[in-house]
Amino acid sequence: MRLEAKFKWLPTPYMSLLLFIVWLLLNNSVSTGHILLAAVLAIVIPLATNPFKVKQPLILKPGLAFRHLMLVLYDIITANIQVAILILGPNKKLTPGFVKVPLDLTHNMPITILASTVSLTPGTVSAEVYPWQESLEEGEIPEQRFLLIHVLNLTDEEALIKTIKQRYEAPLKEIFQC
């Protein structure tokens, strides 16, 4: 896990790239003027806002991150079709449930990404991260965290926990190296 970027003048390289692309998309042009302006904004905005931010782990394996993103996008599409079938089917067949998933991740940023992917993918919505953020001291990182998720149709709890841990959590651990 690394918190500090390589270059002082580029504290968050991926956010800079995102800002660059978003500026070009918003103006819908690739003229020289707009590229220049986007580059200036992409360098100045992270520099100006960096002091406000809490230091988060950086992405250390961009290639794996991209592969994971593609996997998640594919899963979103397939999982949505399943959820649509579940919604249109009879209500009586559904057995909802709350499941507590023990996490290996400890930092806020990877957990946020994991919770978002869980919300968007297989018939589950992440509900809470235990222990409560409010019960912790400022800056304290607990050793073991749990993610409470609500499942639309719970058939096999063990298999679900295993899928989430292997398919979504393990790559995140690798990407952030923590």
Partner: peptide, 22 residues
Amino acid sequence: VGSIGLVKMPDFFMRLHGPTKA
């Protein structure tokens, strides 16, 4: 489908699944 799920499901936690995903 998302809006049908919003109306059809019996409790809040199940209703949430339609709008967030579909």
